[in-house]
Design a protein around this nucleic acid. Structure first.
Length: 749
DNA sequence: ACTGATTCTTTTTTT
DNA sequence: AAGAATCAGT
């Protein structure tokens, strides 16, 4: 007991040992939040004799859930199986599986990831001949998910204008289609589960009676609906212990609602907020930078991180001519860190958007530094894996049209656009799924056997008569025989069976670039094997749900010492000895798209705050003058966030030699270290391509300039020469403008 | 119906 | 730049 609580500071101890009351813990970055949560669970079980069965813990990511279970198991020799620990989506899935009939779902309902959802929406829109130009599928998707997050069904949308009426109509048709196919999207998991508890009082009583202690991590990232779900589960009795940090709320785009923290205070009669402000992660200068930056946001719950450690190093700023130079710089620094004894896995390389990782990967690869990329294209999202999963989904729930369409002619079996069109028409006419239509359209004598949930299993009488090698019937027979053969098989056997019979392996064997894909298909067997080891439920359906909900975390090479590459978003919760934050440029970070959204800039700033607070000892901030993005070179000015960090905390690094003038070739650069001087402040060094005036070489693309009226900016384009010349300048405040050199008063910055 | 070529689109973050 | 979608030719 004393062992359990030793080493906690006063505030942490107070949070851990609270009596049966609800509590709000405001926990800054690196303040031991996870430790408090796990220790509290262990404390409840050990000292207060709370049954693990009565504990529900919600985390934001699957990784965090896993981590929590591991830590609890390390503290207590108990069986954690009775505890409900997981993400909102994972827990809702668990509940819906247990009560699928009450929830109005088939037993083997499948989960759509975002891409799957978009595919369904596109199909539906096409079916009803909607104007795709006027109503882009992505926007429809956004509308539907937003409505669901607000707890609103298609029939409940309040439409006052034509546009919304149309959206509501699409939403309704989409709902019908999903029901027909027995599939649910991410938001649906939450909404269904919520509706189940609202409608079914017996179930609601059951769960709220069972869970006497509910603990929520990353509470600032919960959505409206998730909060309502929590309240239902809590009922009147449970004590709810939530931990969060409003400064680290970075998922507003996905419905996260910081207001939940204030609502929680009110709804659960919180008299006192416990603040964890002592930071055990970073040195002082890094914390100072983060604290100063975040103070630019409004409406914060007040909080200031401090550390008992020293100031440590200054934050290092590097201005690279191009993204390639930036990557070269990072590689060089990482190498010397490694030489100094920093493990590669203790180096984090962060960026705002996934598109930035390619250049960095390339540089690391050429330098033979091992690295690991998180996010991006995940294992379960790869094309070949999606195909394999589609076969598996057809075995579990053949009404899944997405799955059917993906593989009905893959590998090719002679089912072209024409036959597909017929199949679609027939399905539309009958009002069923494509699979149902396919069953009715095929020849031969078939005895259908209907299971309770509407799934059709067919006994094939004419197998002996020969199975067609091509065409629709061949596909129907293939799936049916797979369904039958797999009835008695274990999960790994099912995967092997599918790989052997689907034709995917021979197909990729014959493809030129297929080796990698074959490897991944093989890896699928490993994925299943490791899944079985930890999962409680080793059914095919459970595995498929796992694949949808945890698209990311299956990656090989987990144990290798490697530099960690990821977006700032996915870095939340992690820490590194040294952190590189690349691409600190206006338009990229803060991102252009955030400018139009209310509160968008504040969210970007919180994102920056998250990035800064990942570093323990050393922080690198880099930006470039020009960057290749989406096939064209963009000229950017330094991020405003750099200017929000006190200059006395920064150390500017400069390349020694002038950068190459043109082209995307780049070698290693030397650089020297300067004390920060007035002139060094975030100024671009050197010049890039695009010389305008051969007479005096005065203006060039990428150059920083100051205009009497518009302030500072950067030249992004040039035209003409001499007195006719014009330059296009991107100003930090006034946007991009063409200026005539004859009139404009430009000075070099 | 299939293949290869060309055009078009997408470019923020994720359960 | 890279992938998806569409188109033309076989």
């Amino acid at each position: 007991m004393s062992l359990l609580l030793s080493g906690l500071n006063n505030e942490q101890l107070k949070a851990v040992t609270l009596q049966d009351q609800s509590a709000l813990v405001l926990a800054g970055a690196g303040s031991g939040k996870t430790r408090v949560l796990t220790t509290r669970i262990a404390y409840l079980i050990q000292s207060r004799q709370v049954s693990p069965h009565s504990i529900l813990a919600v985390t934001f990511t699957n990784k965090a859930a896993k981590e929590m279970l591991i830590r609890i198991s390390a503290m207590l020799p108990i069986n954690t199986q009775g505890m409900w620990v997981g993400t909102f989506h994972g827990l809702c899935n668990r509940m819906l599986r247990a009560h699928y009939q009450d929830a109005g779902l088939p037993q083997a309902f499948q989960i759509l990831d975002s891409a799957d959802q978009l595919a369904v929406i596109k199909r539906v829109l096409k079916d009803i001949n909607a104007d795709i130009e006027k109503f882009p599928p992505r926007q429809v998707q956004w509308f539907i998910n937003n409505a669901k997050d607000g707890g609103i069904r298609g029939s409940q949308v309040e439409a006052s204008d034509d546009f919304t009426r149309k959206m509501a109509e699409f939403y309704l048709v989409y709902e019908q289609q999903c029901n027909k196919e027995g599939v649910v999207d991410f938001a649906e998991l939450l909404l269904r589960s919520y509706e189940l508890l609202t409608r079914n009082e017996v179930l609601q009583k059951h769960y709220s009676g069972r869970f006497s202690h509910i603990l929520v991590d990353e509470f600032q990232d919960t959505s409206q609906l998730q909060y309502k779900w929590l309240r239902l589960l809590a009922g009147a009795e449970a004590s709810v212990f939530v931990v969060g940090d409003d400064d680290q709320s970075i998922y507003a785009f996905r419905g996260a609602n910081t207001g939940n923290m204030k609502d929680f205070e009110r709804d659960f009669n919180i008299s006192e907020i416990i603040k964890l402000e002592q930071n055990y992660r970073s040195h002082g200068n890094i914390l100072d930078a983060a604290n100063t930056l975040i103070r630019n946001n409004n409406g914060r719950l007040d909080k200031n991180l401090w550390t008992s450690e020293g100031d440590g190093e200054l934050l290092r700023v590097y201005n690279a001519p191009t993204d390639l130079d930036e990557a070269a710089f990072i590689v060089k620094e990482a190498k010397s860190l490694y030489a100094e004894g920093v493990k590669l896995s203790q180096i984090g390389l962060l960026y705002r958007s996934n598109a930035q990782s390619r250049v960095l990967e390339h540089a690391l690869f050429n330098a033979s530094l091992s690295y690991r990329v998180y996010g991006g294209l995940r294992f379960f999202e790869r094309q070949e894996i999606k195909h394999a999963l589609a076969y598996l989904r057809m075995i579990a729930n053949p009404n899944d049209d997405n799955a059917l369409l993906r593989i009905i002619n893959f590998p090719a079996r002679g089912i072209g656009a024409r036959s597909l069109e017929q199949l679609k028409d027939s399905a539309k006419e009958k009002g069923g799924s494509l699979w149902q239509a396919a069953l009715e359209n095929r020849g031969g004598v078939v005895l259908n056997q209907e299971l309770g949930d509407g799934t059709l299993i067919s006994r094939i009488e004419n197998r002996a008569a020969g199975i067609p090698k091509k065409g629709l019937n061949s596909f129907v027979f293939l799936i049916e025989s797979m369904q039958q053969d797999c009835l008695e098989l274990t999960l790994p056997e099912i995967i092997k069976h599918m790989l052997e019979h689907s034709g995917l392996v021979p197909h990729y064997n014959s493809q030129r670039e297929g080796a990698n894909r074959l490897e991944n298909l093989n890896e699928l067997i490993n994925a299943v094997t490791s899944y079985i080891q930890e999962a409680e439920d080793s059914s095919l359906t459970a595995f498929l749900a796992h694949a949808s909900l945890e698209a990311g975390e299956h990656q090989s090479g987990n144990d290798q010492d490697a530099i960690q590459l990821m977006t700032v978003h996915s870095s939340k919760g992690l820490e590194f000895h040294s952190v590189f934050l690349s691409g600190l440029e206006e338009g990229l970070f803060p991102h252009d798209n955030s400018r139009n959204e209310a509160g968008g800039l504040d969210e970007e700033r919180r994102l920056m705050y998250v990035a800064l607070t990942r570093a323990q000892r050393r922080m690198y901030l880099s930006f470039t003058q020009s960057r290749m993005l989406h096939g064209q070179t963009r000229y950017n000015i330094p991020s405003r966030f750099l200017k929000e960090i006190p200059e006395k905390l920064l150390k500017f690094l400069h390349p020694v030699q002038e950068p190459a003038a043109t082209g995307r070739v780049s070698g290693e650069k030397n650089y020297r270290v300067d004390a920060p001087t007035r002139n060094s402040k975030l100024r671009m060094q050197g010049s890039a391509s695009g010389i305008l005036d051969s007479e005096n070489l005065k203006w060039s693309i990428g150059q920083n300039v100051i205009h009497a009226k518009f302030g500072e900016g950067i030249i992004v384009n040039c035209e003409g020469g001499g007195s006719d010349g014009r330059v296009q300048v991107k100003f930090s405040q006034y946007g991009t403008k063409w200026l005539s050199l004859e009139y404009a008063k430009l000075t070099s910055a």
